[in-house]
Structure formats: structure tokens, C-alpha cells
Simulated scan of single mutants.
Amino acid sequence: MNLSEIETFLTIVNTKSISRTADLLFLSQPTVSHRLTSLENELGFPLVVRNKGYKQVELTPKGTDFIVIAERWMSLWKETLELKRNQETLLLKIGCTDSLNIAVFAPLYDKLLQDHTRLDLNIQSHHSSELYGLLGEHNIDIGLVYHKLHYKNIITEKLFEEKLYLIQSAAPSVPSAKVHTDELDPSTELFLSWDDNFQIWHDRWFSSVSRPHIAADTITLLDRLWKKEENWMIAPVSVISELSRYRPLFISELKNPPPARICYKIRHRYPKTTSKHAVEFFEHALEEFLKTPFPSFTFGEVWSPAENR
């Protein structure tokens, strides 16, 4: 087996298409087919079912079983390359959602860099579902997500959960400590889908014919676009704390609250040996970091940046 054959097979697994694999790897379709056949000859069993007229590639049972071995083979190859570079510093690749990076873990990253001068960080922001794929291919060493998905080689561990509240400007349209969603105007909402459970809850309580004033996928963008006094948002505690550093907020509980948002740590069942020490540094620092509780708010009052310093 060689690198090109394994890479070609794993790309076929992801694309389920010979032509799409050829496009992604900048190869001709006959070259892709030759590599696949060569790998099958070396293994002594077929990896794909060859049905004429079918555009989508289907794996044989042994082909499905071979995916795990192929992924480990690629991982070992990447580790070998890293060892050859003989770097004196450690590199940790962290994958995280945007809101977690900005509102929760930025201080942790800062402390890690201060405490471990030999540690370099590669921090990537992606959606939770994308992070599982990146971790499965060893493109990140550890992930922090808001979705619990089931992947064969990924271990998921719950870290914490946080409640969501209503936030308005310092001159709120609904100045109450407790508010029902029926009292809110959907046309002035600032919306970010925090996780699947929140999306389901939101779809239930807000009419499908109405739409938010602004929908985005980063809290930084929503903060920059929050210009109107009548705008409001439903957000988790960590995000509220982050936004309140820059603007006064009127915080209310919801009479029909959304489910709490749960954060998970994900790691590969077969981690890279080259990142072992860096991951250990991170997990120890993470454990200590999470001992500090989230801030508590007084509902029905304005929470100002001065109070949050």
C-alpha cells in the first residue's frame, strides 16, 4: 500500500464518486480507478461494488471495515512527517465553534500560551458537524462542540451546560424580568442558531411566516450589526457575558425557556502520538478553567460593561 492509493480510497469514501474524486485530486478517472484496483489487488479483496450504470460508489462489507485501517494508516503517515520535521515546539490543533472560541475559551487559550512557552496553537472555527469530520481525519487534535454525534472512532464527553436568556438594549421594548416569546416582535430579532435543540424550540414558538431582522452565524457580526434600540436576541450565558463587555444589556428570563445548551469535548479514539503531550496540557488546563462558574445576572435590570469588568 502507498499514500496515493490510501488517499484515493478515503476520498472515494467521502465523495462516493469516481469522477468527483478525480476532480478533487486533480487526476483522470482512469488513474483513480487504477489506484483503487491496485489497492484491492494488494489487499486481496474488493473494496467497492462495481455495478454498471450506477453513478454512486457503494462499498463492500470489507471495504467498510477497511475505512478504519485506512484512516489509521494516514494518521501514522502524518505523524511520521511531523517527526521528520523535528520541531522543538509542540503544536496543538483545536477545533471549536465560533461562539465557544470567542465567548468561552479565548482566556483559556491565552493562559495556555503563557504557561507553556513551547506550545503553538492552531485554532479553527467550524460548525459542530464539520469538526467531527476534521477530528476523524486527524486534521485537529481535539474539538469543542455543541452537538453529540455518534462516530465510530470519536469519544464524546460532556463539559458543561448553560441556560439561554432574552437580551435587549438598555431601553428595552419589553422591560420585564420575565418575558414570554409572544410579547416579542420577531421582525426585530437578531438570530443565531445555537444548536439543534434551540432551533427546534425557536421553530415552535415563532411563526414560520415571520423571520428575524438579522440572522448570522457569528456573534461578532451580530454585535456589529446591532444598531437599533428595539433589537433583541436570545443567547446563552457565555455569549451574554461577552456582549455585555461592549454594550449595556437588559436581561430577562423567558417564561417558556429554550433547553440549555450543552458543550462537549471530542477526541479521537486513536490520537496522534506527536500531539499527546500538547493534548495533555490542554485537558489539564481545561479542567482547571471550567472550575470558574459563569456569571449570574439580575433579571429585569440593565447589565452594563462597567459591572462586567
Rank of each mutant, 00 (worst) to 15 (best):
L81S: 10
L39K: 02
D141Q: 07
T37K: 15
R211I: 07
Q114I: 11
N256K: 06
Q56H: 13
I234T: 02
L190E: 01
E253P: 02
L112T: 00
K265R: 15
E307H: 05
V32Q: 05
K152W: 03
K276C: 06
R72Y: 04
L113C: 04
I262H: 14
V48P: 01
P271W: 02
L27S: 09
E42G: 06
F281K: 07
L81G: 10
L166Y: 03
L192N: 06
H268W: 08
H213V: 00
L25Q: 06
E157L: 08
I219K: 03
E287R: 10
N256S: 12
L113M: 12
V279K: 12
A235R: 00
I18Y: 15
H277I: 15
Y132Q: 03
S173Q: 14
S208P: 09
D110S: 13
Y109T: 03
E88M: 11
L10A: 05
G300N: 04
L24Y: 05
T80K: 14
Q87G: 12
L36A: 05
V239P: 01
L113D: 01
E82D: 11
L90Y: 13
T188K: 11
E82F: 08
W77T: 10
S208C: 09
D196N: 13
L249F: 06
P293K: 07
T156L: 06
G53Q: 06
F282V: 05
D65F: 00
K265I: 02
H138N: 15
T97H: 03
S304D: 08
I219F: 04
T11N: 13
C96Q: 13
V48T: 15
G136Y: 06
K78P: 00
A260V: 05
F45W: 05
D23M: 12
E71P: 00
L121V: 08
P295L: 08
A215N: 08
L121A: 07
T64C: 04
S129Q: 12
H213T: 02
G300W: 02
L27E: 11
E287G: 00
Q56R: 15
I240D: 00
H147G: 08
G95I: 02
Y270R: 09
T8K: 03
L25I: 08
T117V: 14
K227D: 10
I94K: 01
L3G: 06
L112N: 00
G300R: 03
H277F: 10
P257I: 01
M1F: 10
K158D: 03
L91Q: 09
D110L: 08
T156Q: 07
E229Y: 04
R224L: 11
H268L: 07
N101Q: 13
S304E: 09
F206D: 08
R72D: 11
S4E: 14
A70E: 04
Y151S: 13
Q124S: 15
N256T: 13
E79F: 04
T8R: 04
R35Y: 08
F26W: 07
L83V: 09
S99R: 07
E88C: 06
T8F: 04
D217T: 14
K111L: 11
D98Y: 10
L222F: 09
S238K: 04
H213F: 15
